[in-house]
Computed example of a mutant assay.
Amino acid sequence: MRKLIPSYIRVPLIFFIIAGLTEYFVDSGDQPAFMENPVVIVFLLLVLLILIAIEGIVGSIENVLYQSLDEEGKARYDAKQTEPSKLVLWVKDAYKKLLGSKPIEEEGEIILDHNYDGIKELDNNLPPWWVYSFYITIIFGVIYMIRYHVFNADDQFAEYEIEYAEAQRAIEEYKKNAKDLVDFNTVELLTDASDLKAGETIFVAKCAVCHKADGGGGIGPNLTDDYWILGGGIKNVFKTISEGGRSGKGMVSWKKEGLKPSEMAQVASYVLQFQGTTPAEPKAAEGEIWVDESAPEENTNTEEAPKTEDTEVIEVVEATEN
């Protein structure tokens, strides 16, 4: 390798391979970006210095060994160093075969009879690499036609739908394991029994002292009616729990008190379970009636049922009796 690749190429190549492996194994979503991690930067600088030092030491050893040789040994060593390696010879031979051109000494065999003011033309064959590439495109075209136009394999639109569905499943799975990434904009109402049970535990421990265990309200407002001071719905309730109540009075910010986003989502979902229940000692309503504008409107228009023949007969009889 030392003979094949010069040191000014070898050292950076090894360094960047180590840097890439370090980035792959060190960098992750919950850590600083690779180049922003000072520990990794210091590590890579040390690696670079070690590589340079090793290169210098090996070069010094080779120089000492070279100086210890006699004149004949030095001559053999120099000849071996200038002799191209088998890999280089193989690459050159493969290049000539793929190029398909004839040496200058043999060009006389393929000179055409055309002569334009002393300019002659060679009848070279197409380069083998070009011919092979052309055959490969033909084979690819046949396979493509059979796959997509005969056997009706999934086209790019179907593949997109499949990949999109897989990505959605991956997102849902990620959300299950990353519930603490939820915030005011992304929180959703939790209906799972385990989440609601966890929310109840938090509510009893931290919220019931002000709102009572049945949500009827004490120091804090009543949670069972349709009136809300800072808005209802899962997003507003989550935000109130997270940021706290009105400035100077009301509930503290539970985000600052150590509740995780997933826990706040659980207790917010549990609080909404009080809606429509009847507490033992309900506190008077506070705030304003909150209506979820995102909820679909119910159709309250009742159309008059069409009259049948029996209905018309009954109406005529009633009119006659009157």
Rank of each mutant, 00 (worst) to 15 (best):
R169S: 11
E62T: 08
V271I: 15
I162V: 12
L48H: 05
M264D: 02
V182P: 03
Y95K: 14
T320R: 10
P221S: 08
W228T: 13
M264S: 02
T201R: 01
I110V: 13
L21Y: 07
L87M: 13
E188M: 12
L51Q: 07
G248P: 02
P103T: 13
A205R: 04
L51K: 05
V252Y: 02
T201K: 03
A198W: 00
E188H: 07
P296I: 10
V317D: 07
L190F: 08
I314M: 12
S247W: 03
D225V: 08
A19C: 05
G59A: 15
A79L: 08
S28W: 06
I61Y: 10
I314F: 10
E163H: 06
P296W: 10
I219M: 12
F203N: 00
V187N: 05
G244I: 03
W90K: 15
E288A: 14
A268M: 03
S242M: 06
E286T: 06
G118L: 04
E109T: 12
I61L: 14
Y160L: 11
K197M: 04
V142A: 13
E297M: 14
A268P: 02
E172S: 11
N301W: 12
S60F: 14
L122M: 07
I139D: 04
D78A: 07
L230G: 07
E105M: 08
L181H: 10
D30A: 13
P127V: 05
Y144E: 13
N322Y: 05
I289K: 13
E72R: 00
V91Y: 09
G244F: 02
L223A: 09
T82N: 14
I52T: 11
G108M: 06
Q168D: 15
H211T: 03
G232C: 14
L196K: 01
F238K: 02
W129D: 05
G108T: 06
V26R: 10
G220Y: 06
E288Q: 12
E243M: 04
Y66L: 02
V182R: 09
E62A: 12
F34E: 10
